[in-house]
Simulated assay, not measured.
Amino acid sequence: MKDSVILVLILLALVGSVGAQKKVVIDGWLKGVEDGTPISLMKEEGSVGTEVAKDSVVNGRFHIEYGPDNEEIGRYSLRSFDKGFPSMGLELWAKPGHHMTIEGQNKLIYTWNVISDIPEQKEWAYFVQANKLLWNNYQELSAIRNIVRSADRSTGLEKKNAQITIDSLDRLSDACLYKIHKRNLDLLQKGRMTSVRLKILDAAANMIKWNHIDAFRTPVAKLYNSLDAHLKNSAYGEHIANVLYPPRVVKVGEPMYDTVLTDLDGKLHRLTEFKGQYILLDFWSFGCGPCHASVPEMKEIFEQLKDRLVIVSLSSDNKKMWKQASEYFKMTWNNFSDGRENRGIYAKYGVEGIPNYVLVAPNGIIKDSWTGYDKGSLKNKIKALTGFSVN
């Protein structure tokens, strides 16, 4: 009997061990972070991060476990939304069965030390640590910016002064980013290009696009042109190519751009199949707050104008997140993707902020294009452009 009990205990221990091996396990050791501070593990799907696990700091420690739906290396981030933290998270590469330890001395989470045996994590840490002082400065500015933005203000003068402060903080932050990416471009000249290094190159390319740092164009182009074909054809590779060699953007008054699109069942579509009706193109993502806010109004427009206006929503999310978002919103109108997130049809329509809308006339000519959403704005815009009213 005693031997049987021991055998059962051993079997239970083995089952528990197997279960643990299928989990991402993170142990954190922190200083300078108050007890009770929530720490969230975010699963990164394309450009959208979703909280999948959470713990609170107790005696300077936290412990997080998460069992993903596969055993591949996944992209994650560790974040806290408490006061004093920056608007960024600790970048993580994690795999079930591979334990990692996080060490932090403050609330500057992006530069916390990660002890892991995953090669991608070690490579990423090399670039972060090479710019640690600059990244810490950037995070401090970000944390101050969050405090300034969240403060209550009752007068126009207070709001104006707050904006002046935010603009000043942004300029200082941009100066940090310039130095960081300049150093990274130098570091990228040494060593073989990998997926992690390509992510860093893409961040430098973004400085060309968003910060207009033309001095980065030549070194980014040199590194891009040396890439193997599989890296050029990756998501980051295509995005870098769009920055260096922007595609021609279709404009108001020109024929709409068309390409092969798919629905969630894999059926192929083209925009030309809707020619003869007004077409409202809706560029969206699940990670976009105003996109969430627009859904009730979009449903009203669809229901009341379905015989006169076709809605085509175009997701910039990857397939997994696109499917989850579509189910969450219960979307019943045309809901497509070209499978290239923001690099394909998004680039051809010049979409740089979402939600973005394009109205195409029945003859296939683009009638208008605009960005952003406020309650009632879609109904008002549709009425002004087509004459169709929605109650």
Rank of each mutant, 00 (worst) to 15 (best):
T111A: 10
A20R: 14
N335H: 06
T371R: 14
E158W: 12
S326G: 12
M88S: 03
H230M: 05
K122G: 01
Y346W: 12
W124I: 02
H63L: 06
E327A: 08
G104N: 00
F127P: 07
V310G: 01
L281D: 10
F274E: 04
D374R: 14
L108R: 12
V15T: 06
S377Q: 15
H99M: 08
N318F: 09
A20I: 14
N131E: 05
A241S: 10
R217G: 03
I144Q: 13
A143T: 01
A325S: 15
Y349I: 12
T218K: 13
D202R: 12
G19E: 13
A13R: 00
S316Y: 11
N184S: 09
S294G: 08
G266D: 04
K348D: 09
I73S: 02
N146D: 09
S17Y: 15
A125S: 15
K232W: 00
T37I: 11
K160D: 04
F81A: 02
R270K: 15
G376Y: 04
Q277G: 04
N380F: 05
W29R: 13
Y110M: 08
K43L: 10
P38A: 09
K323F: 11
H230C: 09
V295C: 05
W333S: 13
S142K: 02
A162P: 03
L141T: 06
Y278L: 11
A53K: 04
V57S: 02
E34C: 06
M331E: 12
R153P: 05
I118W: 09
Y328S: 13
V252M: 01
T259S: 13
N233Q: 13
G287S: 15
I64S: 02
V295D: 04
R192S: 00
H98T: 02
D338S: 09
G156C: 02
L385H: 01
Q129T: 12
V15D: 08
S369D: 00
Y328D: 14
E341M: 07
V15K: 06
A20D: 14
L30N: 08
N335P: 03
S168E: 01
A347D: 01
T262H: 14
L309T: 11
S389K: 13
K267C: 06
I354Q: 03
I279M: 14
V249A: 08
K199M: 12
D117T: 05
G156W: 08
S154N: 12
D55A: 06
L231Q: 10
L108G: 09
I73T: 14
K182E: 07
I118K: 11
V250D: 07
Y346A: 04
I208V: 14
N363T: 05
A204G: 11
T37E: 04
K2M: 11
L141F: 01
A215C: 07
L201Y: 11
G74S: 13
L264H: 05
I118V: 13
S150I: 02
K251T: 06
N184F: 05
K199C: 00
N318D: 15
L280S: 08
S56W: 07
F81P: 00
Q139R: 03
S87H: 07
G376Q: 08
C288E: 09
Q105R: 15
R270F: 02
K330T: 15
N225E: 14
Y126A: 02
Y66K: 00
V18A: 04
P355G: 12
H230F: 07
A151H: 00
A347E: 03
H269W: 05
Q21V: 05
N225L: 08
G287D: 11
K299D: 14
